[in-house]
């Protein structure tokens, strides 16, 4: 068994004439927090989309825990223990906070049609347990939200929605969490708090690995063990934050594009 939980091997993705990912290889160690950084349009979100099975790869392969999961369906990837948040929030706005979080968990509960329709007693028990579980997870991020579990998500400000989206990803006790710009639209302090909360949840469980895409370099510096830098779909640097930040090519890529 290798030490790496996730491995990209020569991953390539083309959208028509655009090569969004170009021969991208990298790995993630177990329990590691990896920063995936790079200028706009460098292929960060695309690599999440390939990993979670939303788009098929044009070439290369993805291994998770030693198993080839290239082009597996999103469902299979979820079942393997990979969850994500989205750069543009994808919550179900008319549904309650509780409902949105449960979307992240119910397919694991494996209840059949009969159990849902006829076994209301057992269902109620499941409902009460999951409600408590979801509520206490939300309480880690915001005590205020935990008191509003039955309110529609659409009524919440963007920051709160981001928190809910992270809870939806965490509720299933995943092995790998993919965060796509979790701090977008937040103030510095709010971002700091959010990261502390995520680390809190991580410390409670066993060995959650995280890949975080983030433009806020302070966040990357604070929480990542290692960074991978993309530019135009290619990996241009890899190493600790201090190492990549000092890299001439990285500085060039950021200055050249931004």
């Amino acid at each position: 068994m290798t030490n790496s939980l996730l491995e990209f091997r020569n991953l390539t993705k083309r959208f028509g004439g655009v090569t969004a990912l170009d021969d991208f290889s990298m790995h993630l160690n177990r329990g590691e927090i990896l920063g995936l950084i790079g200028p706009n349009g460098s292929g960060k979100t695309t690599s999440f989309n390939l990993l979670t099975g939303i788009y098929p790869a044009s070439g290369g392969s993805i291994f998770f825990d030693g198993e080839d999961i290239t082009n597996k369906s999103p469902r299979k990837v979820y079942e393997a223990g990979v969850v994500r948040t989205f750069q543009r929030s994808r919550l179900c706005l008319p549904l309650s906070i509780y409902d949105n979080i449960m979307i992240g968990d119910t397919s694991r509960l494996k209840t059949g049609i009969c159990a849902n329709l006829l076994g209301r007693k057992a269902f109620r028990k499941q409902y009460e347990e999951t409600f408590e579980k979801a509520r206490s997870l939300v309480a880690t991020f915001s005590g205020n939200l935990a008191d509003r579990m039955m309110e529609p998500v659409g009524a919440l400000p963007m920051i709160e929605r981001r928190r809910i989206e992270i809870c939806r990803a965490l509720i299933s006790e995943p092995r790998l969490l993919l965060l796509d710009e979790p701090s977008a639209g937040m103030t510095h302090d709010e971002t700091d708090q959010l990261m502390t909360d995520i680390l809190d949840v991580r410390a409670r469980g066993e060995g959650l690995s995280i890949i975080i895409v983030e433009h806020e370099m302070g966040v990357i510096e604070r929480i990542t063990d290692r960074c991978v830098v993309l530019s135009y779909g290619r990996k241009i640097a890899e190493g600790s934050y201090a190492e990549v930040a000092a890299d001439a090519e990285v500085q060039n890529a950021y200055l050249g594009v931004d």
Binding site: P74, R75, F86, I103, F123
Partner: peptide, 23 residues
Amino acid sequence: SWLGLHMDAVRLDETAAACFGIS
């Protein structure tokens, strides 16, 4: 029930639903 929740999830965002294992 979870069935109804899955139906809503599918109606509102198929991609997100699929990413959380909903068939």
